[in-house]
């Protein structure tokens, strides 16, 4: 995945990262290196496997007690204007008195600075982001007045308003019907030309044909820099027979397995 004439920059570099909650280890010796252009990385794993924790490590919201985290060669705190974040959808209060436009503008705060009004540049970036996700015509709507898929696109626009070089999505497909999920993936497929994208999901069937690489996470991260998952990794991640969890997964994601069902 080399591009001629471009200096390769490491998007993410995690070395031996450990985190815990109380006495329980959540992430164990996680190593991950992503180089530009990295396309769309899907991180799958069961609920409670540490996926959201790993995203929080990327975002600098959680400090590992061991190991180092670098984004674009800097600490997560120093690379905030390069990272766009789409949080888990179910956290929101959709009755909140805020319009689509105001939501997307909040994605500019890492650029605008404290105590300043949003500049014309901020407004232009918000407008572009809304146009990218084809939601500009809804800019004056209160977010509760949108469908699930439309809201998800607004939150992606908020992340895009940052002009990120890395886009992080936490379970972006939850709560979306299959048609809306497909639209989401096509959008991500367009976006990945301009930025690295990491998407976390517990839903194996969501790992669609658009994903370029896959990693499995259940405390340990299994990652082979490819879009194929060795069956042993899947079994180690989910700790159950692969036949069961492989149901409904596009076949090309799974490696051919001798004697498999």
């Amino acid at each position: 995945m080399k591009v001629d004439g471009k200096v390769m920059e490491k998007v993410i570099e995690l070395k031996d990262v450990w985190t815990r909650y109380g006495n329980q280890v959540i992430l164990e010796a996680v190593n991950l290196e992503l180089e530009e252009p990295s396309g769309l990385l899907g991180i799958i794993g069961p609920n409670g496997g540490g996926k959201t924790t790993l995203l929080k490590v990327f975002l600098g919201l959680l400090k590992p007690y061991r190991g180092s985290v670098k984004l674009f060669g800097k600490s997560p705190e120093k690379s905030r204007d390069l990272v766009g974040y789409v949080p888990q959808y179910k956290r929101f209060d959709f009755d909140f008195p805020i319009s689509v436009w105001e939501v997307v503008l909040t994605g500019r705060m890492s650029h605008t600075g404290f105590l300043k009004k949003y500049s014309d540049e901020d407004k232009k970036a918000a407008e572009d982001a809304l146009k990218t996700v084809e939601m500009f015509q809804y800019k004056d709507r209160q977010i509760g007045q949108l469908s699930g898929g439309q809201r998800q696109r607004v939150f992606i626009a908020r992340a895009l308003a940052t002009n990120p070089k890395l886009l992080l999505l936490d379970e972006p497909n939850s709560g979306l019907d299959p048609h809306m999920q497909d639209e989401l993936y096509r959008l991500l497929d367009r976006l990945k030309k301009d930025m690295a994208i990491i998407m976390v999901t517990h839903d194996l069937s969501a790992v669609s044909i658009y994903v370029d690489r896959i990693a499995c996470l259940n405390r340990k991260l299994h990652y082979h820099n490819s879009r194929e998952i060795p069956v042993e990794d899947l079994e180690a991640t989910y700790q159950c027979p692969v036949e069961l969890i492989a149901h409904g997964v596009p076949h090309r994601v799974l490696e051919k397995h001798n004697g498999g069902s």
Partner: peptide
């Protein structure tokens, strides 16, 4: 008046606001 945009973002999504460096 001074913190209007920060308070709005804080109330709507505290975690995202933190990620924005606020």
């Amino acid at each position: 008046y001074l913190f209007y945009k920060e308070f709005l973002s804080l109330c709507f999504d505290e975690e995202f606001t933190t990620v924005q460096g606020v």
